[in-house]
Nucleic acid binder design. Sequence first.
DNA 1: TCGCGATGTGTGGCCGGACCACACCGCGAC
DNA 2: GTCGCGGTGTGGTCCGGCCACACATCGCGA
Lengths: 274, 274
Amino acid sequence: MCGRTTPRQAVATAGRCPTLWLVRTHELVLARIERDLSAGRLTVGGRLPAERTLAAELGVSRASVREAIRVLEAMGIIRTNVGSGPDAGAVVIDNPAAGMTSGIRLHVASHHVPVGDVVQLRVLLETWSVARVADLVRTAGTDGVTPPDLVGASEVLGLMDESSVTIQEFHRLDAAFHGSLVALSGNVLVAAVMAGLRGAIHDYVLTGSLRLPDWPATAARLRAEHRGILAAVEGGAPGEAAERVRAHIEGFYREAELDGATSATANDGNRPAG
Amino acid sequence: MCGRTTPRQAVATAGRCPTLWLVRTHELVLARIERDLSAGRLTVGGRLPAERTLAAELGVSRASVREAIRVLEAMGIIRTNVGSGPDAGAVVIDNPAAGMTSGIRLHVASHHVPVGDVVQLRVLLETWSVARVADLVRTAGTDGVTPPDLVGASEVLGLMDESSVTIQEFHRLDAAFHGSLVALSGNVLVAAVMAGLRGAIHDYVLTGSLRLPDWPATAARLRAEHRGILAAVEGGAPGEAAERVRAHIEGFYREAELDGATSATANDGNRPAG
DNA sequence: TCGCGATGTGTGGCCGGACCACACCGCGAC
DNA sequence: GTCGCGGTGTGGTCCGGCCACACATCGCGA
């Protein structure tokens, strides 16, 4: 036996311990939950069994259950709450962006993923998204496709025009605008990755903005570019929308001097602005 | 005080507990490690302090440290090993794909991210990558750019020609081929996301392949398509390479009947906008 | 009868201590 | 010199406990 005599040892027919059953205990819990998710026994909004219950059911310690729950929480699969009532316990949510955000942020922190790569991927996803949405606008009606609803994005732009918005609020609204456009592309995974990218470098963006010599001027330019992007989308011009988005994003990162060398071509001069 | 009197309580100047210091203990550990990573005190290949040491340093319990370590492990930031020696303990690695894989897989399992969305994103990333690599080939030499090294990809194709490869091996090599092309694009984040996408739906692909009526024929077609993609890349033809990749991926998923409705617009053909 | 405080119950959060298997390291016997 | 064996430090696992929290219930007094 191993690690104290335990119910789990009853499963191992015979012999040594960890290397033999070759999965750590918390992975066993993860597997169980993933199965429940897959089989539909657990759906968004549902609740996991209580930690103590789950531990007893699986014959593992509560500590192992908690480790698994932490992982799921980090992935944006569940959310935990103390207390009692309908919202207490570990409820299944679906927030892929959360996991993306922390994961990417950590890898950026470990200096293995350059900020430039993040920006590059963001440009790729976002140009694709707006092009797609613009194309939906263009083809709407011709084949029964309902046109995408752009009022949300438009309203956000209205809020950004308020002169009282702080830099923080501005970026929050900016995220909302870009996010709503990407969401209209219909691909939830792309939207999640996008949100993750944004979140991962949010601090960089904020500190970069605070360094800008003339934020009001920059903000005004960004507002105008947003209008232009939205107009291109509303006009059903995929190519123009994509190009405007590309210029918008790359321009800002260049101005904020966040265009750190991409892992791509670190050798050729990728610091055009000086 | 709260949760038994503990060193940590000394930090809280006064008052209630969890909601007041509003971060869970393991997040405190995560923050510390992220700081160390960011500051370069912790680099790839380095080792975290022992769990007991870390717990003592931060004034938290070993359980909380372990929860944080589980999260980092799930993200592909660290890898843990028992025993002693240079490889023991929690060593910093950098495997973003691992976190992506499990994260995406879980969200697919929870029925919130359709397989079709995964495929769509894969097509987007991979067409971009091969187009980029092909463009690098095309412009190589003209401005001091060293041409990408395609021998690795070519060798993998050679291995796939062996008649003895099983379906499992075939898909492993297929992943290696696509992975090497994406890696040549130079964007490590794109490569990581790609690997994550592949891993997340690997089981689907495998079972889908086993269902195919005539696997040898399919395999032969896939091999030919790989050759075509590689030729287009080697020939410096971005557009052709991208189109071949798109057809290759979409064709396979359609044949294997894995092109489940995308969350996007299940009605129109999921053409990448344009 | 109605309102409201005290009490009960189930939840996650956290702790400390314990034991195990493992891998290495160095000492001592041969 | 070589071999064997115990010491040491590591993660892996478990147990039992206590706390704060939020809700549900009951009982008491107005």
